[in-house]
């Protein structure tokens, strides 16, 4: 890859964990949270970084932002060694933590943005332009005067994403950006990120548990488990490796025997509600039509396989 924006070469992060054994003695144990990861990301890519809890996703992101110092390996972001030149790097990256806000809790949103402008020395014209863009696309106009602590999770997340972009970062890291958001908020965040990447060419690296985030945003997926990179490639390849199943949940008018439709099997029945599994690659439409035509259908929903599921199948398929 010519001139990668992000490059990791054999990156490791080892934590010393001290555990009390008996009254005074302490046992020291080493945990390899990240165990020799290498990859490169080119300018303008949108990459999904997935894996089960505790796989080392957040630890990797924290090394890429300079929060944590790697225990070994070579790491460069925009030519900068993050841990050594954290402040210099800060001007070139944007970071969104799904679990915590980078905004000032007690201040109105716009005061936080004003402080960001000065802190990052954003030229006024540029700041206006970026604010306008974010306020419009993330629908922030009504929230600007509200203290951050009064915002809902979805509103706060939109506020945080805007804050991470005001200084025109070349790369945007998002750690679980859609966690806890409702469907509408998720859709809005995804649409915004897509537009950001298309219009400004911002490189995006995101961790998520939501397979839809990956499907709708990322051309490239990396799967990490036990601190190692297990897969790096297109999403299609991941599906092929661990063919998942989607679930159609149907609410019928009354309790009935398990429905029988081609291309799906009932995996669970609970009163008038039934769960039908069907291959993830197939469309749900013919199945829905079939069920609606033959049974007294009240309501339905489609559930995507979650990432743990796909990964579990991937391992099963490999082993």
């Amino acid at each position: 890859m010519a001139d990668p924006l992000i490059s990791l070469d054999g990156i490791e992060k080892v934590f010393d964990v001290r555990r009390r054994v008996g009254l005074m003695r302490r046992e020291k144990r080493q945990v390899r949270a990240v165990d020799g990861i290498s990859f490169e990301v080119a300018r303008g890519e949108v990459v999904g970084y997935i894996g089960p809890n505790g796989a080392g996703k957040s630890t990797t992101i924290k090394m890429l932002t300079g929060i944590l110092t790697p225990s070994g390996g070579r790491l460069r972001v925009a030519g900068i060694d993050p841990a050594r030149e954290r402040m210099r790097l800060a001007h070139r990256i944007g970071v969104v933590f799904g679990q915590r806000t980078t905004l000032w809790w007690d201040l109105p949103l716009k005061d936080s943005y004003g402080l960001m402008r000065r802190m990052y020395r954003i030229p006024p014209a540029r700041f206006e332009q970026n604010m306008e863009r974010c306020v419009e696309q993330l629908d922030l106009a009504a929230l600007l005067d509200v203290p951050v602590r009064q915002l809902s999770l979805g509103q706060r997340m939109r506020g945080d994403i805007a804050a991470a972009l005001l200084h025109d970062p070349e790369v945007l890291y998002l750690d679980e950006p859609t966690i806890g958001l409702d469907v509408v908020s998720k859709a809005r965040v995804r649409a915004f990120l897509r537009q950001l990447n298309e219009e400004l060419g911002t490189t995006v690296l995101l961790t998520t548990h939501d397979l839809q985030d990956i499907e709708q945003l990322c051309e490239r997926v990396m799967v990490i488990d036990h601190g190692r990179l297990m897969y790096d490639g297109a999403l299609g390849g991941l599906h092929a490796m661990g063919e998942g199943e989607r679930t159609l949940v149907v609410d019928l008018e009354r309790e009935l025997a398990p429905v029988e439709v081609p291309g799906a099997r009932v995996v669970k029945v609970e009163g008038a509600r039934q769960w039908l599994a069907f291959p993830a690659g197939e469309s749900a439409a013919p199945l829905v039509a079939e069920v609606a035509g033959r049974y007294p259908l009240l309501d339905l929903s489609v559930r995507e396989p979650d990432i743990e599921d796909v990964i579990a199948r991937m391992y099963a398929g490999r082993g």
């Binding site: 924290k62 932002t65 300079g66 929060i67 954290r86 402040m87 210099r88 800060a90 001007h91 990256i93 970071v95 933590f97 915590r100 806000t101 980078t102 802190m119 990052y120």
Partner: peptide
Amino acid sequence: DGSLDTMLVRPVP
């Protein structure tokens, strides 16, 4: 609580 993270990504000591 890990909220020091947010300070470490800003361009100020």
